[in-house]
Computed example of a mutant assay.
Amino acid sequence: MLGEFKTFIARGNVLDLAVGVIIGAAFGTITKSLTDDVIMPIIGAIFGGFDFTSYFVRLGPVPAGYAGSLNDYAALKAAGVPLFGYGAFATVVLNFVILAFIVFLLVRSVNRMLARMEREKVEGTAPPAADPADIVLLREIRDELKNRAPL
C-alpha cells in the first residue's frame, strides 16, 4: 500500500494539483487585495463614498458591553452580533467575478497559443507544393533521355 501511495504521489498529476492549489490561494489573496484596495475605493469615489461592507442587517441584539459603532460591520461581527452582511457578500461575489475573468483570460491565451503552435506544426509538416507542369515535363524528358540506349 505504501508503494502504491508513493507511485500515486510521484505521478505528476497530484504534484500539479498541489502547485495549482498553492498558486490559486496566493492568487486569491491578490484578487482580494485588488478588489478591496483598488476597485472598491474607485467605485466608492464614483458613487460618493459607497462602501459595500457598510450594508448589513442586524439579526440579533448587540451585547451589553459593546462600545463600538453600530455601523461597523467588522466590529459587530467580532462582538458576536448575528448579521446579514449582503454588502460583504457582494464584495466576495465581485472578487469571484474578477478572479473568474482573469482565469478566463489566462485559459483563452493558453488555448490561442496552443492553437497557433498546432497550426505551425501542421504547416511545418505539410507536403511541399507540387512542381509546376513545365518542370514536371522537363524531368520526364530528362528521365526518358537517360533511359535511351546510347547511339
Results as ranks from 00 to 15, higher is better:
F5C: 08
T53I: 05
V38L: 13
S109Q: 07
I22Y: 11
E140D: 11
I42Q: 13
A126F: 04
R112S: 02
R108D: 03
A67W: 10
T29A: 14
L83G: 08
A74V: 03
S33N: 11
A88W: 07
G24A: 01
A25Y: 15
F56E: 10
R119W: 04
M113W: 05
L2P: 03
I23T: 07
A115C: 03
G85A: 15
V122W: 07
L15M: 11
I43E: 07
R58V: 03
S109H: 08
R112Q: 05
A64Q: 15
R148Y: 06
V21Y: 10
I39G: 00
P82L: 10
A26M: 04
K121H: 10
D51W: 01
L94V: 00
K121L: 05
P61N: 11
L105N: 06
K32N: 08
N95S: 12
F104M: 05
G28H: 10
V93G: 01
F50H: 08
L151C: 03
V136M: 13
V110E: 13
T53P: 00
F5V: 11
E140F: 08
E144I: 01
V136D: 15
E140M: 14
V81W: 02
D36S: 08
D16A: 10
S109F: 14
V110H: 07
G87L: 02
G85P: 15
G65R: 01
L2Q: 07
P128E: 15
F84G: 00
E120G: 05
P63E: 01
L83C: 09
G28V: 11
K121T: 07
E140V: 01
F56M: 14
A130K: 09
